[in-house]
Amino acid sequence: MKNFNGKVLFLDRNDINTDEIIPAKYLTEVTKLALKPYCLEDLKLESFQPQRDVPGKTVVVSRDNFGCGSSREHAPWALEVNGIYAVVASGFARIFRGNMFNGGLMAVTLTASQIDELFGTFAGQACTMSTDWSAQTITFSAGKTQKTYDIGLGGFEKALVEAGGWVEYAAAHY
């Protein structure tokens, strides 16, 4: 199973789309690794610089409708090859969310007020997330401050993460 513990990248906007996560011009690549330098390249957010802010992060925290737009699995891959294995948001586009679990990655949906709380408490700080898979919780911490939330995954999504993805699950079941 993937490692879901590490530093958090905060992206404070609704509707971050797959073109922003990985622009279409890089869809000509035929390996996942080739996407690495271009992750979030077209995302225009105040004080966000992809080259500086993406490396070293493991988790993205964002707001509603994350990953909307095209079906390109290049979007979760662009995150994955940069070591970002989990996205925590108040909502996801269906295909993006499915793509995350299909690749053994994790998309955690929290309520809008929980996300507000996360941004309010931790944005701008060196924040880390840790995952307790047995307790089904994620904990964010910076200094002495900690916040813990339920992962809230269904049995099928958990099974996909545990299997390492949908190809592995389907190969074993169908």
Binding site: S71, R72, E73, P76, I95, F96, G98, N99, N102, G103, G165, W166, V167, A170, A171, Y174
Partner: peptide, 13 residues
């Protein structure tokens, strides 16, 4: 519409 992994499983299974 689906991602590449769904497509992969679709092709295979």
């Amino acid at each position: 519409g689906v991602g590449t992994t769904d497509l992969e499983v679709g092709i295979l299974k």
